Amino acid sequence: MTAFEAVALILAGMAAGTLNTVVGSGSLITFPVLLAMGYPPVLANVTNNVGVLPGSLSGAWAYREHLHGQGKLLALLITCAGAGGVLGAVLLLNLPASVFDAVVPALILFACLLVVLGPLMKNRLAGRRGPTGASGDRLATIGPGAFMTAVYGGYFGAGQGIILLSLLSVGMSGTLHRSNAFKNVLGASANIFAAIVFLSATHIAWAAAGFIAVGAVIGGQIGGRLGKRLPPSAYRLIIVAVGITAITYFYIK
């Protein structure tokens, strides 16, 4: 690996860590960078999962003040997310690589659409719940939703944060910051359990994962401290631009 590639991965990891903490979908930056460096799609996805994981943990720590007294609910949802992450990882490793090549452009497009439409979806659905969120947490919605989202996250991952944040902001009471704190923990949980499967069953490009991890940890702290001051529209524009680039890569390679 050249020095330029190492720096590019660190910078991509920082951007992904920041985006994952504040908005989600940071893998739409790191995953295409790995593809551009010549890594096969499945290896790039596995390496990306391991690389961005420390950033997810860093982001969860940055939002820890919104998780006080939430132990029982966290344990339940972490269990759901962990089980989903394992299933998604098993699907990735056992389905033919051609399936991954075929579905990834559609998954990236789906994630980009969620980035664009997510705020509208959240506003419309949250409006039905009422501004105070007095109905409480809807476990029948967020439990299965966390599981299914984690299956997607274990299989691919990009866009997982957007899906989770949309789900939690509608199904949970309280502020968006509380939903975002849970999003960071559940995303990290899905990645941890998926990474355990990957570590035991497949090859990982450790050098690339390490450089991404260094940047992602820094980005997680940046997102936790400064991300809320930045316009979400700027994040969404970057994510969509990178997503379109990734889709184009898959169709012209």
Rank of each mutant, 00 (worst) to 15 (best):
F198Q: 02
G223C: 03
F31A: 06
L74N: 03
V116L: 10
L176H: 09
G145E: 08
R64N: 04
A246G: 08
T79V: 10
L43P: 05
H177S: 13
S233N: 08
V115I: 13
G127E: 10
M37Y: 12
R138M: 15
G88A: 08
G223E: 00
F156S: 07
G171I: 06
A3Q: 07
G154T: 00
N48P: 08
F147H: 05
G88C: 07
A12N: 06
V242S: 15
A16E: 00
A208L: 02
G69E: 05
H177N: 15
G127M: 05
A12H: 05
L226M: 15
V197Y: 03
N49Y: 03
L237F: 13
G215F: 01
K183M: 01
V151C: 02
A106D: 07
A3V: 15
L34E: 02
V99D: 08
A111L: 09
L114A: 07
G223D: 01
S169A: 14
A6F: 10
S135T: 12
N184E: 03
L76A: 09
A83C: 15
A60Y: 04
L34A: 14
V170N: 02
W61R: 13
K253C: 06
A234K: 05
R129V: 09
I247N: 00
H177P: 02
F198C: 13
P41S: 11
G17I: 00
I244F: 15
I163K: 12
V240F: 03
I192A: 08
V50T: 07
P32I: 03
K228M: 04
Y63G: 05
S179P: 11
H203D: 11
L230G: 02
E5D: 14
